[in-house]
């Protein structure tokens, strides 16, 4: 691969540098806000793999987000920091297991059935945590100390430090982006693209379509879990809302906003969505009207789905063609 110096590449480089340097000049509030954006960016990319690249619309992606979050919380002892490696790998393993179990069932169905079945399975997890005492019921549970990232007693990264945490999630975002990019350029990725367009023909060409879809579902689920895990330790708190269909619908919205089938678009969509959410629920700016943020968000979502099917990036590219 050879990089040419174009305005676009230069802009990207400047943007990346600024994001990297953000904790050096920004206030704590903004660093944490951007950590959240990075985490939701990872989450949106994972769903985009399914929706944008395989054509599988899932309305239950929050299940992975929430499962991993609860795993992080349940494996964190109350009075000391948990072990990052233990709780992280446990969280991802749970997500892989859940993806395998529900994927085998949900992928027996197509289009609208798939939407409903994924929603139903996520709701099942929601009920488990909402109705039972496992994770503190409807109130959720707290993580009092962020897990310790240490090998044989030597602390590698101080995750309690908000700046370190930001850089840590930033690194994960870049790594996951690169992983997905490479994956999508491989034979495997091209086969997924073929399945999205014409599944039947792919089968006739000799592709075991089901296994391709299942593997993509598992990959998407585990990356969704990574996002959920980081979300839980950032806020030190998980509750059933993390698994609710609002979370699933929101991440779908981020994917659409950024333009489906574009990984950086998904990250862009996540940032727009999170910033918008901050803005319309900001009381100091909008006064009492801020309590109606869900009304504004509702109209925004309706408008995007009616008028901007290709997301904001679609708006730009259409504008530039004219």
């Amino acid at each position: 691969m050879n990089f040419k110096i174009t305005t676009r590449n230069l802009l990207v480089a400047v943007l990346l540098l600024m994001l990297c340097a953000l904790p050096l000049f920004a206030e704590k509030f903004y660093v944490q806000l951007f950590s959240k954006i990075l985490i939701m960016g990872i989450f949106a990319m994972s769903l985009d793999l399914l929706v944008g690249y395989v054509g599988l619309v899932s309305l239950g992606h929050a299940a992975f987000f929430g499962l991993a979050g609860y795993c992080a919380a349940l494996l964190s002892p109350q009075y000391e920091a948990g072990n990052f490696f233990v709780s992280f790998s446990a969280a991802i393993s749970i997500c892989i297991l859940f993806a395998l179990l529900t994927g085998v069932l949900a992928l027996r169905t197509k289009s609208f059935y798939f939407i409903m079945v994924t929603l139903a399975f996520a709701q099942m997890i929601f009920f488990i945590f909402h109705d039972t005492k496992i994770g503190g019921g409807g109130d959720g549970i707290y993580i009092y100390q962020k897990p310790l990232l240490a090998i044989s007693g030597i602390t590698l990264l101080e995750l309690e430090n908000f700046k370190t945490f930001y850089w840590f999630t930033f690194g994960w975002l870049i790594a996951i982006y690169a992983f997905l990019r490479i994956l999508l350029q491989s034979h495997y990725g091209h086969a997924l693209g073929g399945i999205k367009v014409n599944e039947h023909r792919m089968r006739a060409l000799g592709y075991p379509v089901f296994w391709y879809k299942l593997s993509a579902y598992v990959i998407a689920g585990s990356i969704g879990g990574i996002a959920g895990y980081f979300n839980a330790i950032q806020f030190g708190f998980v509750n059933p809302e993390n698994i609710s269909w609002h979370t699933s619908a929101n991440v779908l919205m981020m994917v659409i906003l950024g333009g489906m089938g574009s990984l950086h678009g998904a990250v862009f969509g996540a940032s727009v969505f999170i910033l918008l959410q901050e803005l319309i629920s900001n009381e100091s700016m909008l006064g009492s009207f801020a309590s109606h943020w869900s009304l504004m968000m509702g109209f925004f979502i309706v408008a995007v789905s009616l008028f901007l099917p290709n997301g904001l990036t679609g708006l730009f590219s259409r504008g530039s063609k004219k």
Partner: peptide
């Protein structure tokens, strides 16, 4: 996909 989103809105 858009039906789901709009009706969610």
């Amino acid at each position: 996909l858009y039906q789901v989103l709009m009706t969610y809105g």
